[in-house]
Simulated assay, not measured.
Amino acid sequence: MKQTVEEAARIEREKVIQELHVAYKMHKDPKHYIISNAAIQKYAVPLFKAGAGWQAKQSPWISVEERLPENNTVVLTRGAYGFLICQLSSLGEWETGANVNKERLGITHWMPIPSFDEILEANKDVPERIKEKGK
């Protein structure tokens, strides 16, 4: 079963609290322990969830559960066969030129394929970086 972000956050919070207990046994500073424990209890889970949300937005991959591409738009997909170039037909079925079992594609994510101009724009600083590396 897949772990939710809330479950992962609680597990990480408990790890930090255990580390705090170990530190308390060494330093025996109850004031520091009480303040730290309260801060961890209050902020750890929301901060973990915020970080997970931020990280999810950094990926160019779009979950098929979130949304699907427009019909007949060619996209890069990720699924049971690895990465395939596919398009979603007007019937809502994934189509690919590969000889695969279409019922078992298991596509979980997709991303638009950038145009050549977009690739050039995203990499326009590469010659300058190469030049800088050579110095």
Rank of each mutant, 00 (worst) to 15 (best):
M1F: 08
K2C: 09
K2N: 02
K2E: 00
T4H: 05
T4P: 00
T4E: 07
V5M: 02
E6R: 01
E6G: 05
E7M: 09
E7P: 01
A8K: 13
A9I: 07
A9H: 00
A9T: 05
I11A: 15
E12Y: 15
R13K: 15
K15P: 04
K15C: 13
V16H: 13
V16C: 11
I17R: 12
I17E: 03
E19T: 14
L20V: 09
H21L: 14
A23F: 06
A23D: 06
A23W: 03
Y24C: 05
Y24L: 00
Y24K: 01
K28P: 01
P30H: 09
Y33G: 03
I35T: 15
I35W: 14
A38F: 06
A39W: 11
I40E: 03
I40D: 01
Y43N: 12
A44R: 08
V45P: 11
V45T: 01
F48T: 09
G51I: 09
G53F: 10
G53K: 12
Q55C: 08
A56P: 01
A56C: 14
A56M: 07
K57D: 11
K57M: 10
Q58M: 15
S59V: 03
S59F: 04
W61G: 07
W61S: 08
I62S: 12
S63E: 11
V64E: 04
L68S: 06
N72Q: 12
N72L: 14
T73F: 13
V74E: 14
L76F: 10
L76V: 00
T77Q: 08
T77G: 02
T77K: 07
G82A: 06
F83I: 04
F83L: 07
L84C: 06
L84G: 11
Q87S: 12
Q87L: 13
L88K: 00
L88N: 07
S90N: 09
S90P: 04
S90L: 15
L91S: 15
G92K: 08
W94F: 01
E95P: 03
E95M: 04
A98N: 15
N99G: 14
N101G: 10
N101Y: 10
K102L: 13
E103D: 15
E103Q: 15
R104M: 13
L105E: 09
G106Q: 03
I107C: 03
I107F: 03
T108H: 03
T108R: 04
T108F: 02
T108Q: 11
M111E: 08
P112A: 11
I113N: 00
I113W: 03
I113Y: 12
I113G: 00
S115W: 04
E118S: 01
I119C: 07
I119A: 03
L120I: 10
E121Q: 08
N123F: 08
K124F: 05
K124D: 02
D125C: 04
D125G: 02
D125N: 02
P127D: 02
R129M: 02
I130M: 13
K131G: 01
K131V: 04
K131C: 10
E132V: 06
K133F: 07
K133W: 10
K133I: 08
K133E: 01
